Amino acid sequence: MAQVFRAAHMVRELEHEDIRVLTGIELGMRRFEFVPMDQISYYARIPKSETEYRLNKLHKSGILQRNSQLGYVGYQLISESYDVLALNALTQQKVIIAVGDLIGRGKESDVYIAKLPTGKECALKIHRIGQTSFRQIRKLRNYIQKRRHISWLYVSRLSAESEFEALKKIEPLKVNSPIPYGQNRHMVVMSLIEGTEISTVPELADPEEVLNKILHQIEIIYEKGDIIHCDLGEFNLLVTLEEDVQIIDWPQWESTDHPNARSYLERDLTNINVFFRKNYGVEFDQEKYLEHLLQL
């Protein structure tokens, strides 16, 4: 059984006190790598005897890591227990009511079909940032540089929060971007994404037109949304059968007033130009277009 399905099952099976204990560990992990039981009891607002019972139960179920080599017994959330907390919150908030099949997997996220309370299908994107990915994600490094220790669960949460914020800013621009429905911890709920990665499309019927559509979206998002993607390339550009374009994966975005805005924008444009030149012999005047955007 996939981890997220096991987590969804546990959401239905766990008691309210179990969720409070998991939340207590989450709060304690701001200060401790492994949270002592007395701190968990304090954060969960549950007596120590009850906390101990719940911790043993959760540990036996395999969703907690326990360490007794620290001079005390400490507990730490793992990715599955974080899934439980996020899914519990999203269902309690009536953002989603069910999780279905895996429909996409990348280096830093998994995407599942989910269902809204209306019965409509949507996408549930679960950010899973590991140590290797973290080294490459400049924005997340900047967020946490002053913290003494860092949980990869927290880094994944930052990634999801950043993407959700970007999607909310982009949605009113009507540029065929996913509609954001909700976010909790490392999970983002959005409308289903249509299309295929442009890197895997065998042949475009009109590559120049597709390139123009991409540049048009970049311009609208830059001018009206004040957003730069900062990680744009052929792996996060989707193309439909009708050759409509959708830009996805926004956790690394920056504002257009960022001190390094020019270099981020230039890198995005370079990636697009290189891809189209290499695969289709089509390109645009990058320097001219860059100056055009910067003057908007």
Rank of each mutant, 00 (worst) to 15 (best):
A2H: 13
Q3T: 11
M10A: 02
V11I: 14
E13L: 14
E15P: 00
H16W: 02
H16M: 02
E17R: 12
R20S: 11
G24Y: 01
F34Y: 15
D38L: 10
D38R: 15
A44C: 11
P47N: 12
K48G: 01
E50H: 14
K57H: 15
H59G: 06
H59D: 06
K60L: 08
G62N: 02
R66K: 15
R66T: 08
N67M: 03
N67Q: 05
L70K: 09
L70A: 03
Y75E: 04
V84T: 04
L85S: 02
L87V: 01
L90P: 04
Q92Y: 04
Q93D: 08
K94P: 00
I96N: 02
V99S: 05
L102Y: 02
G104V: 00
Y112F: 15
L116I: 04
P117R: 05
T118D: 12
G119M: 10
E121D: 11
K125F: 01
I126F: 01
G130E: 12
T132D: 12
T132Q: 07
R138A: 01
R148T: 12
H149A: 03
S162H: 06
S162R: 06
F164D: 03
K169H: 01
G182Y: 02
V189E: 06
M190I: 04
L192H: 07
I193D: 02
T196G: 00
T196V: 13
I198K: 07
L204K: 06
I214N: 05
H216T: 08
Q217Y: 04
Q217M: 11
Q217C: 09
I220P: 02
K224M: 03
D226L: 00
G233D: 14
V239T: 12
L241G: 13
E242R: 15
V245W: 05
I247H: 12
I247T: 11
W250Y: 15
Q252G: 11
S255H: 08
T256E: 00
N260R: 13
A261R: 14
R262W: 05
L269K: 10
T270S: 10
I272W: 04
N273G: 02
F275E: 09
E287Q: 15
K288Q: 13
L294S: 06
Q295I: 00
